[in-house]
Design a protein around this nucleic acid. Structure first.
Lengths: 329, 329
DNA sequence: TTGTATGCGTTATCAT
DNA sequence: ATGATAACGCATACAA
């Protein structure tokens, strides 16, 4: 082009200016600027055998859109932000079958992965073929897997504290509500049980209320839950979303909250403070979760430290608003 | 490997089996399966000069996380779904400056782009350098740009109908609320004005209430809006989010909704029916918006039809719930 | 300090 | 029906 070799140009592009004469650095930089040169990333990746792609793959059940949930939306936004500022690019997949995503990950030669919602068997399946770091968010069944980083919450402790708070408000007949009893919901249930047991109350499966939110025409079981609720003065919910559903269901059918029955949430997403009564709930820092996920991933990727911590447990925080009533018995 | 040329193998991979002897097709397929062959997409892209990447870039103001908003979350989910089922891959960027994203788009040689929140100047800037199709969601200032597809809503008509409905409920002193008065918010304001004018009321800027939601410690102006609200019996809001804020602000300060003042929303996101009173609002099909965006993009990409429609206006629908009171004057 | 040469994995053109 | 072979744009080991 202007009588220099590709090597020299390449060195300038990569800032290895010590290896190039100042005069040439100037000349080359100028032309680069003038022609607004853009490297072809595909070619670069091919030559250097990396990709600068980080994949974010979230499990989706059925045909749901996971990003409608503020939790996933906020998480994704945080991950995108940090991935970009660390010099990587974010590819997003929402799937219900890991096997489908495996071929993308391998074909694109992605540098790392952030997964959310997948469990042990699925992660190990990925790992068999994919030999790069994986961050697993909110799973309790994967432990000490090679090249894997777990990011969790103080789920059990948080549910324990919330239950204890509710007991402290004078409640004795307390139920726990979730849509299943595995993984992080199970941890929360355990926390609930512990607080109940310590108070000499009943922390058994008997008081586990299973909610079927009823997506896509599927029938929900809110009527049934409404009937069952008469046996309790408080319900600990495993998410703000379900707490809000209870709020409306109960109030529309005539039970006042918190006067007739108290309800607590989990997550402290935005609408937790927008519904009425505003939810007493457990706050988690979703933004932080996303940022830490990427930071850990990049650290393992670029520094590959031996004996790096592969488990992060983020703190939670009680947020007391108006959905729990202080009673006398 | 097994005594066939790359060409033959390539043909088998791409299903061009007519050009290969059945015997070889079998042999090659078997080995491909056995070794679980994955093509290197970077190499493929380099050779074929495309990328199978569709970029989604959303404008972000300040340091906000746009995907916390259910609107963007749901849109992203829909786009991801359709992009993948059409055989493409989705890269996501949330930025406040188009120039930053331009280099990614060009470097990756992306096949197409879905943009959201950007306006005329920014799009044209992109277009100068990027010679592939761009879908522009929710912008009113870009018209008939080369290789561009606009996707909008019946914003004006929807606001017109909502205002007309509120007037029909007996309201006369009606305000319009948004955080700015440009682009799609302006269209909605125009619809409001038209309905007001037709009813012989005042549809002027005087009744435009500007809300400052107060992100990141910034002070909001809810107190001021509360004071101003006494001049009205109804407020048409440009989003459910703001309507929900008013709901709480007003009720916490003592004005009952809808008894003391009526409020309407826009979008019908999920929490529009979770707040109390449930919002009377305008429904838009966000899912559909995302799907159509990708469909149009892929159509232009793969078929490149002459005289293709480059404007899609999606319908809206009134959703009447409990936040508007029927009054007598 | 600079240049040459080779390879990355795939597609595509052209012979055979 | 099959096989050489030349791109694609960049990085890098090595030579000069």
């Amino acid at each position: 082009m202007l009588n220099v070799s590709t090597t020299t140009v390449s060195n300038v592009i990569h800032g290895k200016t010590k290896e190039v004469s100042p005069a040439n650095v100037e000349r080359i930089r100028k032309v680069l600027d003038e022609y607004d040169y853009m490297p072809n990333i595909n070619a670069r990746n091919l030559a250097s055998n990396r990709s600068k792609i980080i994949g974010m793959v979230v499990k989706v059940n059925g045909k749901e859109n996971p990003f409608k949930d503020q939790f996933f939306g906020e998480l994704l936004g945080a991950v995108e932000d940090r991935v970009r500022s660390r010099g990587y690019n974010l590819m997003v997949y929402a799937l219900n079958d890991v096997r489908q995503v495996q071929k993308f990950i391998l074909s694109w030669n992605m540098d790392g992965l952030v997964t959310c919602g997948f469990v042990e068997g699925e992660i190990s399946y990925l790992q068999e073929r994919y030999k790069k770091p994986i961050v697993i968010i909110d799973d309790y069944d994967t432990n000490d897997l090679e090249r894997c980083i777990n990011i969790r919450l103080e789920d059990k402790k948080a549910a324990y504290e919330m239950t204890k708070y509710v007991i402290g408000c004078g409640h004795k007949k307390i139920a726990f509500l979730a849509d299943n009893n595995v993984n992080l919901d199970h941890q929360r249930f355990l926390g609930y049980c512990q607080a109940m047991d310590e108070a000499g109350l009943f922390g058994s499966e008997e008081n586990f209320l299973k909610i079927c939110p009823g997506n896509r025409g599927e029938k929900n079981n809110l009527d049934e839950l409404y009937e069952k609720s008469f046996a309790y003065t408080a319900i600990i919910c495993s998410s703000d979303y379900y707490a809000a559903m209870l709020l409306n269901t109960f109030q529309d059918r005539g039970r006042k909250i918190p006067d007739d029955i108290s309800v607590t949430g989990f997550d402290d997403v935005e609408y937790a403070s927008l519904v009425r009564p505003a939810l007493t709930t457990v706050r988690q820092d979703i933004q932080e979760k996303g940022l830490v996920a990427v930071d850990m991933l990049v650290k393992m990727l670029e520094e590959n430290p031996k004996d790096m911590d592969t488990l992060v447990v983020l703190p939670t925080q009680m947020v007391i608003r108006d959905s729990v009533k202080r009673i006398n018995g």
